[in-house]
């Protein structure tokens, strides 16, 4: 089965959004989403890492693991390649773009344990995407994740003054808001379909 790369790209942003339909990357989503600027920074970092690690892991899987029959090792290989790549990016950014490092730096180590990154790599192998589709899927997922976290940060900012019931404050209300946002995103379903 082949997929139109562009369809996959838009589906990853809207109908199969990482957070609203796959629940991936929730940990940092809940913890960080209190400030719009920080959210944008983290979103950019996630998008960047996703767009690069998806093709890297694709190549590793199809040209190293499959020929040797080592598919079952993919978890270890994926997580190591993601961690190594994040480390590499951090070093390059620190040397060459100090200003970017200041705004992005603290988020990079967090990204290794962001389930969205590993999730994208696993989804693309399960769904048998080709190289171009995988890259666009990674990019789209990252943008979708950024859209979600920035939108949530915006809503939370507006809600600062509202009287939230005591037990619901913090993560509770964040989850309820996310639920309502997910409801809104269901409105996109049917426009583009993957899987």
């Amino acid at each position: 089965m082949t997929f139109n790369p562009l369809v996959v790209f838009f589906a990853a942003i809207f109908t199969n959004n990482m957070i609203f339909s796959n629940f991936l990357g929730m940990c940092s989503f809940i913890a960080v989403s209190s400030d719009i600027k920080t959210s944008i920074g983290l979103g950019q970092a996630v998008t960047f890492v996703l767009a690069i690690t998806a093709p890297i892991n694709y190549l590793l899987y199809h040209y190293v693991l499959v020929p040797f029959g080592l598919e079952y090792l993919r978890y270890i290989v994926f997580i190591v390649s993601i961690a190594a790549f994040v480390q590499l990016v951090e070093m390059i950014v620190e040397r060459s773009f100090p200003s970017l490092h200041q705004s992005l730096g603290i988020f990079l180590p967090l990204i290794t344990v962001n389930c969205a990154i590993l999730g994208v790599s696993l989804f693309m192998t399960i769904r048998n995407y080709n190289l171009i589709t995988s890259t666009l899927y990674g990019l789209g997922s990252g943008l979708g994740w950024m859209l979600a976290i920035v939108a949530l940060a915006g809503i939370k900012k507006r809600m600062k003054m509202s009287a939230v019931p005591e037990g619901l404050q913090g993560s509770g209300i964040t989850l309820i808001i996310t639920g309502i946002m997910a409801l809104a995103f269901i409105g996109f379903s049917g426009i583009v379909q993957i899987s």
Binding site: F20, G167, L175
Partner: peptide, 25 residues
């Protein structure tokens, strides 16, 4: 059917955390 879809999961976890926080309090 909303309970099977993603929003149902978010609402349920939110409510569960709400209850647990209140009980702990």
């Amino acid at each position: 059917s909303i309970m099977i879809m993603p929003p149902g999961a978010f609402f349920m976890l939110g409510i569960l955390i709400w209850i647990l926080h209140t009980v702990k309090k």
